Amino acid sequence: MRGAILLPIFLNLATPAEAQPRSLGIFFQWGAFEEGNHCFAIAEPERSPRPRDWKPFASIGYWPGHGVRGQLHIRLSRQKREGSAVLLKIDDRTWQLIGGGNNAWAPDRRADAEIVAAMRTGVDMTIETRSDRGARVQDHYRLRGAATAIDAAAIACARPS
């Protein structure tokens, strides 16, 4: 699966202090972090139901050793119903994401690049799907600070180790 590279970073954000990501900065609702050989910009949704077992988020990740730059990863606030579309909307543009369970990704690098470009100039981002129980799921993000957090993550992972 396309997001398998980034998935391990986010499986458990509550890890021992020595394994915590290093903050590169907080920019309104968005943060940028470096952890080992990868960097990411990340935010929690402004409005969404809160699951008990995980925290929903949107992130843009960089893994220079794997050739990954600007990869979108969404952790949904609810388990997605099998067969339901996951739609990402930024202002007046919409993309269909791929994924399953509580995760979603852009279908390819081109879509990643389009989404990141739209995030840089956009105001609001919404992720919509149907939960495994059939309820409408809608996670809402403000994009103020996203461009700066994305740039901080990209720059940190562009530096030679």
Rank of each mutant, 00 (worst) to 15 (best):
L72W: 02
A111C: 08
E82Q: 11
E34Q: 08
S77G: 15
S48Y: 00
C39G: 03
A118F: 01
S77D: 02
D108E: 13
H73T: 09
E128K: 04
A58R: 06
G134R: 13
N103C: 15
L76D: 03
E128D: 09
I90G: 00
M119Y: 04
A104Q: 12
G61R: 06
S84A: 10
G101L: 05
D91V: 01
L72R: 04
P45Q: 06
S48F: 01
A117L: 15
L72K: 01
I42F: 04
T121V: 06
A41T: 12
W105E: 08
V116Y: 00
N37L: 09
D112G: 02
K89E: 12
G67C: 15
M119V: 13
G100S: 13
G99Q: 11
R75K: 07
E34D: 11
E114F: 00
E34C: 11
E35F: 09
A104K: 02
E46R: 02
W95G: 00
L72T: 10
R110H: 09
G36E: 09
Y62G: 12
W95L: 00
P56L: 11
A106V: 02
G101A: 14
W54R: 07
R75V: 13
G83V: 01
A104Y: 02
R110C: 02
L72C: 15
G67V: 04
A104F: 15
S84C: 12
A41H: 04
V86D: 09
P51M: 08
G83Y: 13
R130P: 12
R52W: 10
G134N: 05
P51Q: 14
W105Y: 04
R47Y: 00
H73E: 09
I127F: 05
H73S: 06
A118H: 01
W30Y: 14
A118W: 00
I74S: 04
A43F: 13
I42S: 02
A113V: 02
V123M: 12
G101R: 06
W105F: 13
L97A: 05
W54V: 04
K80I: 14
R50Y: 14
D124Q: 11
